[in-house]
Design a protein around this nucleic acid. Structure first.
Length: 246
DNA sequence: GCGACAG
DNA sequence: ATCTTGTCGC
């Protein structure tokens, strides 16, 4: 099935219901998986532009053995504003283009979005994985609709806590760095909560946010700064492809 | 009082 | 996301 990026809410909602019902083969990380990530940022002066047609930059990176082995940056325009549950409308197409531009395909992709934790059980991380035929894991600061389902209090310092929707665990709240706020590892395309948690814990380093995600975020934000003539492009950062903001 | 539903 | 204010640690 070719997974599209609908341009209106009704079509996206219908697609999300279909995606939620699919059962792609489960993915489980091997010894040294290539972990990638994608990130999108938006124009800071978007207020002057119509919501739904603002400049945006997307970046993606692939890591292997702790090192970046591929990077891609793309510039474009959003098709919609943000609405809970409809993030794919706003960031899906750009994110997909950036990840598709990676010279080295990752084994699993981290996305700053939700997966199964969604009103229709198909957040952007899950949608993106289906669209690119790539296992995905969502990584966010907080859940969308899932609630803590663990025993006792909500002390994440004692270990990952399951987050559930209607009794079904869809993600884990996990502290990747002592003293820092926990983040949420979401089950998404071809990944269940346990796999999402394992991938996040396996790639966790000194920083709270996984390195591939931090790199993708840096690349996207730098591209935006370069476009605004606010900074020179660092050596090693690919020039954005696609629409050139002026 | 405001926000409490990803980004 | 982005912005802003405040606090903590290197």
């Amino acid at each position: 099935m070719r997974v599209p990026w609908p341009s209106d809410a009704a079509a996206l909602e219908a697609l999300q219901r279909r995606l939620a019902g699919m059962a792609p083969p489960p993915y489980w990380p091997g010894p040294a998986p290539r972990v990638g990530a994608g990130f999108v940022c938006f124009a800071e002066d978007a207020g002057a532009l119509a919501a739904g047609a603002e400049p945006a930059w997307a970046a993606a990176a692939t890591f292997e053995g702790g090192r970046r082995v591929a990077a891609a940056v793309i510039a474009g325009t959003t098709a919609a504003g943000y609405a809970p549950g409809l993030l794919a409308l706003r960031a899906g197409p750009l994110l997909a283009r950036a990840v598709a531009g990676l010279a080295v395909r990752p084994d699993v992709l981290l996305v700053d979005a939700t997966g199964r934790d969604h009103p229709r059980r198909a957040g952007l991380a899950l949608h993106l994985g289906a669209a690119l035929d790539l296992p995905t894991v969502g990584v966010t600061d907080r859940p969308l609709v899932a609630v803590d389902a663990g025993p006792g209090g909500d002390d994440t310092a004692r270990g990952p806590r399951p987050l559930a929707l209607d009794g079904e665990v869809v993600a884990y709240l996990v502290r990747t760095r002592a003293g820092a706020r926990p983040l949420v590892a979401h089950a998404a395309w071809r990944t269940d909560p346990a796999t999402a948690l394992a991938v996040v814990q396996a790639i966790a380093g000194a920083a709270r946010t996984p390195a591939p995600l931090r790199e993708a975020r840096r690349l996207a934000r730098t591209a935006r700064a370069v476009a605004a003539d606010r900074a020179p492009r660092p050596a090693g950062d690919p020039a954005p492809s696609g629409w050139i903001p002026s």
